[in-house]
Amino acid sequence: MNQQTNKQRFSLRKRVSSFKYAVDGLKVLLAEEHNARIHMVVAVLVVIFGFIMDIGYAEWGLLLFTIGFVLVAEIFNTCVEAVCDVLCPEKDIRIKKIKDLAALAVLVAAVVAVAVGCLVFLPRLVSWLVC
Protein backbone atom coordinates (compact mmCIF):
# COMPACT_ATOMS: atom_id res chain seq x y z
CA MET A 1 0.00 0.00 0.00
CA ASN A 2 1.28 3.46 -0.84
CA GLN A 3 2.35 5.48 2.22
CA GLN A 4 0.69 8.62 0.86
CA THR A 5 -2.77 7.04 1.07
CA ASN A 6 -2.37 6.59 4.85
CA LYS A 7 -1.57 10.25 5.43
CA GLN A 8 -4.21 12.91 5.69
CA ARG A 9 -3.86 16.00 3.58
CA PHE A 10 -2.67 19.17 5.23
CA SER A 11 -5.53 21.31 6.44
CA LEU A 12 -5.01 24.78 7.88
CA ARG A 13 -8.41 24.56 9.53
CA LYS A 14 -7.41 21.34 11.34
CA ARG A 15 -4.11 22.88 12.44
CA VAL A 16 -5.85 25.94 13.85
CA SER A 17 -8.53 23.84 15.55
CA SER A 18 -5.80 21.71 17.15
CA PHE A 19 -4.93 24.71 19.33
CA LYS A 20 -8.24 24.03 21.09
CA TYR A 21 -6.66 20.96 22.71
CA ALA A 22 -3.84 23.09 24.09
CA VAL A 23 -6.30 25.66 25.43
CA ASP A 24 -8.32 22.83 27.01
CA GLY A 25 -5.10 21.58 28.62
CA LEU A 26 -4.35 25.04 29.99
CA LYS A 27 -7.86 25.21 31.48
CA VAL A 28 -7.35 21.84 33.18
CA LEU A 29 -3.91 22.83 34.46
CA LEU A 30 -5.11 26.10 35.97
CA ALA A 31 -8.35 24.65 37.34
CA GLU A 32 -6.85 21.57 38.98
CA GLU A 33 -3.23 22.33 39.83
CA HIS A 34 -2.61 24.80 42.67
CA ASN A 35 1.13 24.91 42.07
CA ALA A 36 0.59 25.73 38.40
CA ARG A 37 -1.47 28.75 39.42
CA ILE A 38 1.34 29.84 41.72
CA HIS A 39 3.87 29.44 38.91
CA MET A 40 1.67 31.51 36.58
CA VAL A 41 1.25 34.31 39.13
CA VAL A 42 5.01 34.38 39.75
CA ALA A 43 5.63 34.41 35.98
CA VAL A 44 3.35 37.43 35.56
CA LEU A 45 5.08 39.21 38.44
CA VAL A 46 8.51 38.47 36.92
CA VAL A 47 7.39 39.92 33.58
CA ILE A 48 6.02 43.05 35.27
CA PHE A 49 9.22 43.37 37.29
CA GLY A 50 11.24 42.95 34.09
CA PHE A 51 9.48 45.94 32.54
CA ILE A 52 9.91 48.01 35.69
CA MET A 53 13.62 47.18 35.89
CA ASP A 54 14.09 47.76 32.14
CA ILE A 55 16.03 44.55 31.53
CA GLY A 56 17.81 43.86 28.24
CA TYR A 57 16.97 41.47 25.41
CA ALA A 58 19.33 38.73 26.61
CA GLU A 59 17.87 38.88 30.10
CA TRP A 60 14.35 38.75 28.67
CA GLY A 61 15.32 35.68 26.70
CA LEU A 62 16.75 34.02 29.78
CA LEU A 63 13.73 34.84 31.93
CA LEU A 64 11.18 33.76 29.32
CA PHE A 65 13.05 30.51 28.70
CA THR A 66 13.17 29.88 32.45
CA ILE A 67 9.46 30.61 32.88
CA GLY A 68 8.71 28.17 30.06
CA PHE A 69 11.03 25.60 31.65
CA VAL A 70 9.13 25.73 34.94
CA LEU A 71 5.70 25.61 33.28
CA VAL A 72 6.68 22.68 31.05
CA ALA A 73 8.03 20.81 34.09
CA GLU A 74 4.73 21.44 35.90
CA ILE A 75 2.72 20.27 32.88
CA PHE A 76 4.73 17.06 32.55
CA ASN A 77 4.46 16.45 36.29
CA THR A 78 0.69 16.81 36.03
CA CYS A 79 0.64 14.37 33.09
CA VAL A 80 2.76 11.81 34.93
CA GLU A 81 0.53 12.02 38.00
CA ALA A 82 -2.63 11.65 35.92
CA VAL A 83 -1.31 8.61 34.03
CA CYS A 84 -0.13 7.00 37.28
CA ASP A 85 -3.55 7.57 38.88
CA VAL A 86 -5.30 5.93 35.91
CA LEU A 87 -2.93 2.97 35.75
CA CYS A 88 -2.79 2.34 39.48
CA PRO A 89 -5.50 4.07 41.56
CA GLU A 90 -4.48 2.22 44.72
CA LYS A 91 -1.36 3.13 46.70
CA ASP A 92 1.77 1.57 45.26
CA ILE A 93 5.35 2.32 46.27
CA ARG A 94 6.47 2.14 42.62
CA ILE A 95 3.92 4.79 41.63
CA LYS A 96 5.00 6.94 44.59
CA LYS A 97 8.58 6.79 43.34
CA ILE A 98 7.51 7.90 39.86
CA LYS A 99 5.39 10.75 41.22
CA ASP A 100 8.14 11.86 43.59
CA LEU A 101 10.66 12.02 40.74
CA ALA A 102 8.24 14.02 38.59
CA ALA A 103 7.69 16.43 41.50
CA LEU A 104 11.45 16.72 41.91
CA ALA A 105 11.72 17.83 38.28
CA VAL A 106 9.41 20.75 39.05
CA LEU A 107 11.37 21.61 42.17
CA VAL A 108 14.66 21.62 40.24
CA ALA A 109 13.12 23.85 37.57
CA ALA A 110 11.78 26.23 40.22
CA VAL A 111 15.14 26.44 42.02
CA VAL A 112 16.88 27.17 38.72
CA ALA A 113 14.25 29.85 38.03
CA VAL A 114 14.91 31.50 41.38
CA ALA A 115 18.65 31.45 40.68
CA VAL A 116 18.13 33.02 37.24
CA GLY A 117 15.82 35.63 38.75
CA CYS A 118 18.47 36.49 41.32
CA LEU A 119 21.16 36.78 38.63
CA VAL A 120 18.96 39.09 36.57
CA PHE A 121 17.33 41.22 39.25
CA LEU A 122 19.65 41.35 42.28
CA PRO A 123 22.35 43.53 40.68
CA ARG A 124 19.68 46.03 39.61
CA LEU A 125 18.02 45.97 43.02
CA VAL A 126 21.34 46.51 44.79
CA SER A 127 22.30 49.43 42.56
CA TRP A 128 18.80 50.91 42.97
CA LEU A 129 18.99 50.63 46.77
CA VAL A 130 22.50 52.08 46.92
CA CYS A 131 21.64 55.15 44.85
Rank of each mutant, 00 (worst) to 15 (best):
V46C: 05
N6T: 05
R37Q: 14
F121R: 08
Y57A: 06
V111C: 09
A102Q: 03
V42G: 06
M1W: 08
A113Y: 05
A43I: 04
N6H: 10
L87A: 09
E74T: 10
D92S: 11
A102T: 02
E59S: 06
A31L: 15
I52N: 04
A31R: 15
R124H: 14
N2A: 08
F65V: 06
N6M: 05
I75T: 03
F49A: 08
Q3H: 10
D92I: 02
T66C: 05
A22N: 05
K7S: 08
G50W: 00
F49T: 07
E74R: 12
V83S: 00
G50A: 03
E74C: 05
T5D: 07
I98N: 03
L64G: 07
I75R: 00
K99G: 01
F49Y: 13
W128L: 14
C88P: 04
I93H: 10
L26N: 01
I38E: 15
K91D: 15
V83L: 00
L29C: 02
E90K: 13
I48P: 11
G50S: 04
L119N: 09
E32T: 13
K97A: 09
F10L: 14
R9I: 08
V41S: 15
V116I: 07
A110N: 11
V120W: 04
I93A: 11
D54R: 14
T66V: 09
F65D: 02
D54L: 05
A58F: 11
A22G: 06
I75W: 04
L63W: 11
V72K: 08
Q8T: 12
I95F: 06
A109L: 03
R9P: 12
S17L: 14
L62K: 13
V112G: 01
V44K: 05
K27V: 12
